[in-house]
Design a protein around this nucleic acid. Sequence first.
DNA 1: TCATCTATGTATAAAGA
DNA 2: TTCTTTATACATAGATG
Lengths: 192, 192
Amino acid sequence: MAKRPSLGRQKIKIAKIEAKSHLQVTFSKRRAGLFKKASELCTLCGVEIAIIVFSPAGKIFSFGHPDVRLLVDRYLSRNSGESSGLSPPPSNGNGFSELNFHLDQILEEVEMERERGEILDGAGKSNGRYWWEEPVEKLGLQEAEQLRDAMEELRKNVGQIILRFGFLDPYNHDGFIGCSGPNDNLEFLYGF
Amino acid sequence: MAKRPSLGRQKIKIAKIEAKSHLQVTFSKRRAGLFKKASELCTLCGVEIAIIVFSPAGKIFSFGHPDVRLLVDRYLSRNSGESSGLSPPPSNGNGFSELNFHLDQILEEVEMERERGEILDGAGKSNGRYWWEEPVEKLGLQEAEQLRDAMEELRKNVGQIILRFGFLDPYNHDGFIGCSGPNDNLEFLYGF
DNA sequence: TCATCTATGTATAAAGA
DNA sequence: TTCTTTATACATAGATG
């Protein structure tokens, strides 16, 4: 009788998981599950959702539809009447600033994808500072190169639009309006 | 074989619910479920989570452990600082799904800008559903048209990339991986 | 609207590859 | 270790009060 190939899902107590390897697995699974649920809720009910998760090491994972910062800023402005001062959108008083910020978001996304491709291109080196960091990438090299090229093309396209409208400081090629500087993409390539 | 008192849970397609009463019920249930999942993740893994939900009517629901405002401020300071990274994308453990979601976000942004142009085109009737509708009147019509065209071009560009990599179901123009399109004004009427 | 019930879909804890 | 598999816990669609 009864030699089970698996015990199946076991009931667990909702309390802090102490075993680190176990915690890491659970975190990854449940984080994915949480984001999926949020995504479904967005689609089913036509709502907008932002989720921000800080790991114990202070790393950030976020989900946002249509955009985390957009929703966060709206949340702050709703709850404090005026802009809280912590909220990024620079107010130039002409309406362009918000649009500017918005496009900045797009550019950031594109830039991240482009850099992602570059990272994939070169031998990805893990910084490995934390025990939960997972050094993995599933994209094949060829796919990564294609993606990088496609993203580069897209980025140029966005850049033209932005330049056309004068959204960027012409003297600062790295500096986008809202945020600037290269981002640390390693965080999002490796878990937690 | 007695008659079943209930059919039990039925499988549903993840697409926008059109029936308003049904939508309301689903929203309430799944919102509660989402917050519960977040709560469990906080406890199990010792992470900090903030969730902000905007209903189509603009009503805000939020979850935060330890506190939404605290986490939001931290998130913004992280992302505004010159040294630290930008917001990481949602991490599903699958590289492609992450990328897919990212491109979805980009598409979403572009789509919003495109609609912005259209709204501006058709004589400024602002119903205040989106953040950008307030300052929008300050944009000149000519600028708006330029923007619309540029965004349309960009959108096509993104679409090509996505199709090239097969990220989207070519037969389903609404169903992106992460989230679906922007809200219609239908549920705008319902108070949730 | 809001809670409850039931049957079933889905997420996931553990173990295996 | 990362990905699958398995069995089960949990979430929830639809009906009902």
